[in-house]
Structures are given as structure tokens and as C-alpha cells.
């Protein structure tokens, strides 16, 4: 019973997160301006991080936690540097 509940919940959750990643990718492709694409990339990073977290729960392996943390850190750095680039035209002043 608990195996069935966890498997069904994780399958639906990963399906929803994959759909969210597809929607973010669509906005990143069609986004009319650069800031829309950066915003969609940030949302895509968050969705990918949650997908890896769900994958870790599915396999029962705590190693995926480190991968999710690294993806979160990289998403923060990428979005901050891209926002600074949009603001000033250069990243490090």
C-alpha cells in the first residue's frame, strides 16, 4: 500500500515537474526580450532542482541531494550575473 502511494505520487510529481520545465523552456524560446529569457532560465533551474530532488526520493538515494544543491547554487549565480549583465553591460565592474 505505501509502496503504491509513494510510486504514484512520485510519478505524478515528476510528470508535473517535467511539464513545468517544458513550459519554462517554451517561454525561454519565445520570450520577447532578454529579461524574459533570464526569468524563464531561473524558473527552469528551480524546476530542474526539484526534479532531481524527486528523483532522489524515487531511488531512495541521498546522493541526489548534493546534485540538487549544486544546481540551486549554479542557478543563483547564473541569474545574478545575467541580471548584472543586463543592467550594466558587464558582469564584474
Amino acid at each position: 500500500m505505501n509502496v503504491l502511494i509513494m510510486q504514484a505520487a512520485l510519478f505524478i510529481a515528476q510528470l508535473m515537474l517535467a511539464l513545468a520545465m517544458i513550459l519554462c523552456t517554451w517561454r525561454m524560446i519565445i520570450g520577447p526580450r532578454a529579461q524574459d529569457r533570464v526569468l524563464a532560465l531561473d524558473a527552469l533551474y528551480v524546476c530542474a532542482m526539484l526534479q532531481v530532488l524527486a528523483f532522489g526520493v524515487r531511488t531512495g538515494n541521498t546522493l541526489y541531494f548534493e546534485a540538487a544543491l549544486v544546481i540551486g547554487v549554479l542557478g543563483f549565480v547564473a541569474t545574478v550575473s545575467l541580471a548584472k549583465f543586463l543592467m550594466r553591460g558587464e558582469v564584474i565592474e
Binding site: 505505501n2 512520485l10 510529481a13 508535473m16 513545468a20 513550459l23 519554462c24 526569468l39 526539484l50 526520493v57
Partner: peptide, 26 residues
């Protein structure tokens, strides 16, 4: 069983809210 139910409910809540946010982005 109780931990499976609670954990599945939280996971579904998190994934559903992420989907709603992505729909808003799109």
C-alpha cells in the same frame, strides 16, 4: 503508511505549485 501518505501529499503539493508557477511564467 502514515509517513508515506504525508510525504506523498507534500511532494504532490510542491510539484503542483511548481507547475502553477511555470504556467504563470508561460
Amino acid at each position: 503508511l502514515w509517513a508515506a501518505i504525508v510525504s506523498a501529499a507534500f511532494i504532490l503539493l510542491g510539484a503542483g505549485l511548481s507547475l502553477v508557477g511555470a504556467v504563470g511564467v508561460a
